[in-house]
């Protein structure tokens, strides 16, 4: 192959990669654009004109902000619970040798490999057969969210723990730190970015979940359920405001984390 051919070949992959990224981002551009939309009629879902009104009054559509607040509360609680339980499991799996380690891995992996509709419908079957069919709502959603976030937390924290240099802890012990001091001064700060990433992942999974939630929500309405409901009738532009705001928040968090990492490593 000639040199020019190789040059094209090399950059062709990069070019294709950029096109795919563009495909991934097109809907996000639309979400941001639509958050400034001034629809002509309630049923219009096309860009009719520019306005800042949606951003000034995001709570205007009835029930939207209640749904967002329900999602935020469930997301925060589910994140705290799943991150705590999952981190403990990850420590056991990486740092301890016990009977059934392979079985534990499979057990953690299975919920991630099950379709959401199966996870959701089996939880519903359990709740109904246990007599909780009438009280579906906040707590049943929370139980479901902790369940499916747990595996993702374990996998994320495990990755961080497995990549850690254990000699740092041995050095601390050699310098007469006891196990407790070693854990809080060495191990925990080193694992913390992994735990934080797991918590972020949990929150976004929980905030975004629809299929499992929809089956176990009773009359409680989360943000995705609100969007689903409005998609059947009229789509208020304010849901795009919430979508854009969440996106900006996440971008800021990720950028902040990256900056902090760069400053520390300098």
């Amino acid at each position: 192959m000639t040199r020019t051919g190789r040059w094209i070949g090399r950059h062709l992959v990069l070019f294709a990669g950029f096109l795919v990224l563009l495909y991934l981002f097109t809907p996000i551009f639309v979400v941001v654009l639509m958050s400034f939309n001034d629809p002509k009629s309630r049923l219009s879902y096309e860009f009719d004109g520019f306005t800042l009104r949606n951003w000034q009054d995001p709570c205007q559509p009835f029930g939207l902000c209640d749904a967002v607040s329900t999602s935020l509360r469930i997301g925060l609680l589910a994140t705290v619970l799943a991150t705590a339980l999952g981190t403990l499991m990850a420590f056991a799996m990486v740092r301890h040798r016990y009977r059934g380690r392979a079985a534990t891995s499979l057990f953690i992996f299975l919920p991630m490999a099950s379709p959401e509709i199966v996870l959701g419908s089996s939880l519903l079957a359990l709740f109904v057969s246990a007599g909780f069919g009438g009280v579906l709502g906040f707590w049943t959603i929370l139980i479901a969210h902790v369940m499916f976030c747990l595996s993702f937390v374990v996998v994320t924290v495990k990755a961080r723990l497995a990549g850690m240099d254990t000699r740092l802890e041995q050095a601390a012990m050699d310098l007469y730190a006891n196990e407790w001091q070693t854990f809080w001064r060495i191990t925990f700060p080193l694992v913390f970015p992994g735990i934080l990433a797991a918590a972020l992942l949990s929150f976004s999974l929980s905030f975004d979940d629809f299929i499992i939630t929809n089956l176990n929500a009773g009359r409680t309405v989360t943000f995705p359920m609100y969007v689903w409901g409005s998609a059947q009738r009229d789509i208020p532009p304010q849901i795009n405001v919430i979508g854009t705001a969440m996106f900006m928040l996440a971008v800021l968090l990720v950028l902040g984390g990256e900056l902090a990492r760069r400053r520390r490593s300098r």
């Binding site: 809907p27 789509i235 795009n240 979508g243």
Partner: peptide, 18 residues
């Protein structure tokens, strides 16, 4: 990873528009 941070449903709705 970024698309994960905008709601799944809101993004799917924007395909409806596209």
């Amino acid at each position: 990873i970024a698309p994960f941070f905008t709601s799944f449903l809101v993004r799917t709705l924007s395909w409806k528009l596209l």
